[in-house]
Design a protein around this nucleic acid. Structure first.
Lengths: 155, 155
DNA sequence: CCATATTAGACAGAGAGACTGACGATGAAA
DNA sequence: TTTCATCGTCAGTCTCTCTGTCTAATATGG
């Protein structure tokens, strides 16, 4: 944990990568620790690829996989896990006999609400650290950046 | 209980988590794609846990592991890989007969320089997208945030 | 209406990358 | 010297993602 001050990254000027990595890592670690405490001890980081994209209307495994940028086999693996843990169920898709819909259970909905509330709580903590105005500025800059990076990716 | 929205994340207001995740993901993907093109096709994301923390003076596996927050076995596995790929070598630690130092080779140093240059290039791209002043502001906010989050983690 | 191509998902196997536990060798301290 | 801590390794396991192959169901052109 202690830094010896002889790294490639000069201590005074963190690389742009670490600038983004560190808060994300911190957030991730905090969130899953809190979810554990809030009564969801069996939720792992991988599950978020499903949880981030699920809706109460249900979603197909193939769609979830495509949105997450992974294979449908991998997505099916994660969905299976969430089924076993009781956070989602599968229902037949009335509009396509081949497809199944992944739908959150009541327990799954409680999880989604908890995760969202924790996200808000984290943002409030950041506002307390930076000041409300600066936190708002940070959000705004990151939102702009994400939009513009999508539109104009680096060469 | 909100039930009218189809998506858990309202489209207009990304969660705080996604705000950090997206630029980091974009950056990672871009960086390793570029490294591939720059002549380092065998470098994978995992290797960064070593590369981020290595110095030209060398570092012990145990230290690398502790700084990366992982086990020394896992770190040794990654170091072995980098040895085989020719990016680092191990040298005996003159101050401790049990220990070995992980030192970058010439090839490893070229990689570190390339990675750092690409990081700068990415930052310049961000400056072009947001404007130089806003990009500087973003860097400043993220630096402050990282320092303050370390000092005062969320509850 | 049928033949063919496409699509949704399942099954099997492989490999990366992380973990735990146990261990020998070396060093530090009583 | 004896005892305990530390450095790195060996062996085994688990999670997660990938390819490749397969079936059942759907969509489409003739």
């Amino acid at each position: 944990m202690k830094s010896d001050g002889r790294h490639i990254d000069p201590p005074g000027r963190p690389t742009f990568g670490s600038l983004f990595r560190e808060p994300y890592q911190t957030y991730l670690t905090w969130l899953y620790e809190r979810l554990k405490r809030e009564g969801f001890p069996d939720i792992r980081v991988t599950h978020s690829t499903v949880l981030r994209r699920i809706s109460i209307d249900g979603a197909r495994v193939t769609d979830l996989a495509e949105r997450a940028g992974m294979t449908k086999q991998s997505m099916a693996y994660i969905v299976d896990d969430l089924i076993e843990l009781g956070y989602v169920t599968i229902a037949p898709d009335p509009s396509d006999g081949r497809a199944k819909l992944v739908v959150p259970t009541k327990k799954g909905e409680r999880l989604l609400v908890a995760a969202r509330d924790l996200g808000d709580m984290y943002e409030q903590h950041v506002a307390k650290l930076l000041g409300a105005g600066q936190a708002k500025k940070l959000r705004s800059l990151l939102e702009q950046l994400n939009v513009k990076l999508t539109a104009t990716p680096p060469p």
